[in-house]
C-alpha cells in the first residue's frame, strides 16, 4: 500500500533527549497501559475480538522484529542472545525474563516474564491478555533464528497465575 501515513521504522521513535529535556525518557506504566488498553477497546468494538487479537499480535511481532534489529542483531551464540535479551528487557523495564527450558537448538522454549509491562498487577479476569507480548516474543525469535514461531501465553497475571508464561514453538 503506497503513501501510508504510519508505516513503522525505529527512527520514528525519535530522539527523546531532544524532545523531553526535562521529563526524560521515563513514564508511568499506567500511561503505557492507558494507551494500549483504550486502543484495544476501540479496535475490538469496531472489528471484533478475533481481529483485535490478530492486530495486536501483528503489532507486537513488528515491535519484536524492530527490537531485535536495534538491540540484538549480530549475536550468534544462543547463551549470549538470551543474556542480552534479559538485560535489555530489564533495562527498558519491559519485564524480568526467565528461560525455564529450551530444547532442540531453540526449537521449543518456555519463557516467563515477571512484572510484565502489560499485565502485572491487573485484576484477575479469567483470561490472558498478553497478545501483544506473544507477537513481540515471536518477532524476536524469528529474526534470531530466521524461522517462524508460534508463541502462546499459557499463564497470565490476569488468569491468577501472577506471572506470564509463554510457550514458543518453531512453526513447520
Amino acid at each position: 500500500m503506497s503513501g501510508r501515513k504510519y508505516a513503522f521504522s525505529w527512527n520514528l521513535l525519535g530522539d527523546i533527549n531532544i524532545g523531553r529535556p526535562h521529563l526524560g525518557n521515563q513514564t508511568r506504566v499506567e500511561a503505557y497501559r492507558l494507551m494500549q488498553f483504550t486502543l484495544r477497546d476501540v479496535i475490538e468494538a469496531k472489528y471484533g475480538t478475533e481481529e483485535a487479537d490478530a492486530v495486536f499480535y501483528a503489532a507486537g511481532k513488528m515491535a519484536g522484529q524492530a527490537f531485535y534489529e536495534y538491540y540484538l542483531k549480530g549475536i550468534e551464540d544462543v547463551g549470549e542472545f538470551v543474556r542480552e535479551l534479559q538485560a535489555k528487557l530489564k533495562e527498558l523495564k519491559i519485564g524480568i525474563l526467565r528461560v525455564e527450558s529450551m530444547s532442540e537448538e531453540v526449537g521449543k522454549l518456555v519463557l516467563t516474564v515477571d512484572e510484565d509491562l502489560d499485565c502485572s498487577g491487573l485484576p484477575e479476569i479469567g483470561f490472558g491478555i498478553c497478545v501483544y507480548d506473544e507477537g513481540f516474543i515471536a518477532g524476536i525469535l524469528e529474526n534470531f533464528t530466521d524461522t517462524p514461531y508460534v508463541v502462546k501465553e499459557v499463564d497470565c497475571w490476569c488468569t491468577g497465575d501472577r506471572t506470564c508464561r509463554f510457550s514458543a514453538v518453531r512453526a513447520h
Binding site: E100, S101, T112, D114, W157, G160, D161, R162, T163
Partner: peptide, 12 residues
C-alpha cells in the same frame, strides 16, 4: 501465583 513464580525461578 507464588507457586508458579517459584517454579519459574527454580527452572530458570
Amino acid at each position: 501465583g507464588l507457586l508458579k513464580a517459584l517454579q519459574s525461578n527454580l527452572r530458570h
